[in-house]
Amino acid sequence: MKLNLKVWRQKGASTGGKFETYTVEANEHMSFLEMLDVLNEQLIAEQREPVSFEHDCREGICGTCSMVINGHPHGPMKGTTTCQLHMRHFNDGETITIEPFRSNSFPVIKDLVVDRAAFDRIIQSGGYISVNTGQAQDGNAIPIEKDLASEAFDAATCIGCGACVAACPNASAMLFTSAKVSHLNMMPQGEVEATQRVLNMINQMDSEGFGACSNITACEAECPKEISVKNIARVNREYFAAVLASEKNPSK
């Protein structure tokens, strides 16, 4: 199959970018990234600079891919990362537009590569349980209801790719933040720090310059792990409780 690719090229964070168009010969069994590999091999053969895009595990779990394909972060297939997206879902002769995840909080490093360090900083602000190695009691000491563990797991499947931010018209990071707060606050082990956690993580999220959530739910619709916006509701709830009912204050 022959494809026309409109690819965003940008030299660095401080420079502007523009689209360039390429033609590539692919086959329907290729993954989307393998199709880009073919494009890059082609560019290298012509001694031109290949398109920079980030990728690693290519099995949908590392969360490294960061491109928007025809307007969809990770492409048009629901619940699928770019690396798991296959070319059989595209048509011969189709023009595909490929852009980086766009958000002020995810500055472009080069072409389709963006910097998502803001997510790390949100985790550092409280996305953990304060337990040192060796302090743990027996794993079975606290029984956890199966459904609760399963719900926490659903939130914990977040791969930290940033598609939620990329998809959100407001570039809000609420789905990411709420998934982590939910995962930890739901577990009995995480309950101890629940109040401080939600205050700190929301505060950090706000200071990173993400937009505010207005419940558009594009995040859930585009999330490759289909994480639910119920987590956002939960975090709102916990944030209100933390601010209004506890003695703690809404920032460090």
Partner: peptide
């Protein structure tokens, strides 16, 4: 250690 960190391992109905 992993349980204490909040790793959501699979559980039986009894928790």
């Amino acid at each position: 250690q992993a349980v204490a960190q909040g790793v959501p391992f699979a559980r039986e109905y009894g928790g």
